[in-house]
Design a protein around this nucleic acid. Sequence first.
DNA 1: ATGTAC
Length: 473
Amino acid sequence: MVSVVADGECRWRIEPAGAMRVPGVVFATAGLLPDAPGDQALQQVADVATLPGIVEASYAMPDVHWGYGFPIGGVAATDPAQGGVISPGGVGFDISCGVRLHTSTVTRADAAPHVGRLMDLLGAATPRGMGRGGVLPAVQPAELDEILLGGSAYTVERGFGDPGDLAFCEDGGAVAGADPGALSARALARGKGQVGSLGSGNHFLEVQAVDRIYDERVAGALGLRPDLLCVMIHCGSRGLGHQICSDHVRVMLSAMERYGIRVPDPQLACAPVTSPEGRRYLAAMAAAANYGRANRQLLTHAVRRCFRNAGLGEVRLLYDVSHNLAKLERHMVDGAARELCVHRKGATRAFPPGHPDLPDPIRAVGQPVLVPGSMGTASYVLVGVTDGRAFHSACHGAGRTLSRHAAVRQAPVEAVRRELAAAGVLVRGASERGLTEEAPEAYKDVDEVVHTCRRARLADPVARLVPVGVVKG
DNA sequence: ATGTAC
């Protein structure tokens, strides 16, 4: 059992031991620490600290929980110039899973008479659940390549969105360096029929209302005001991203010995960033990231049509950001700028005010950090802070406390439906299994997680959003 | 998260 020691405000430290090259650092209250008997999340934080080239520490966000190899809520940066590695398990199976948030032009009260119809339209317009079907019919190989190279930017070119949307997408809507040729035939086959689809599990499309503003200046700059109706989309790269992760874990497992890399868990399979295996994964990962962003952009297009059909006006993109991705970023380490490979898995980039990668209209206030709550609970908008930690990263959600299996065992579907109805949340399209796996009782308290981000200096809360209606797989 | 095992 790994032990943690208190190390400041909402901060815990795992001392380097054995093969650990750096300490583990967990940002949490005592109550948020994943310390149930048998839980491996803290062991995973320690295991990540053994990776070649890791810099500063193996970090965990307040929503940390047990994942594949790396914990979900984990952040780890490696230095490619010092033998630093890239690990598919540090990105996760759902490559570029992320969140986009839109504002509308109507308040909750103005929209109230039309919300039932809006939810019916959104339910009908949102391909979801396991398997096939998307906003686009099965795409031909040439078009799939365009999506893998161009992401949201390509779909906007095709007419699925406003050119102005792209400024509010991380990376302008497309990650550079994507290579469709780095994808297996199976990954391509799984991707062709799911372009513009929600998926299942914790993915959702939610109509929300602004419930509380924490910072009026920043909220104003982002276009958020009390009672404003908003739409949040949480989805990823579907079967295509999953297949890429599986493919490259296998490749790296067999390559590690050649590079003299030993890891404490095969799920931490990795290769040097500068190696052929490392570069090929990054090129495939970028392609999956673009697929995920195109996916979310197509759902935005569907949302806009639904709002117009319901007589509820226009919808503006506030921001789109991934929380499962590795990126090459410049960071200051011990007073010197270094180019690092930052893995964020279930963790959101949180660039500070003034960062050059942020678009003009929001650069002054910092990068929006979009935090979806568990089903039926609040979601949050935060912004990155100047004194941010963990290579400018923050939480990505509430964080599970119960496995999917345990969640299904502990609550009957009727109880979950009653709870959502009592909270006044309209539900469309949710499967019984989806509802029980995603019961709020299986998650940490998102309010506490967000509050902890502020106390730990990861990001500052801007606004709290509450659910009005949800479309789920 | 995921054609919940190829």
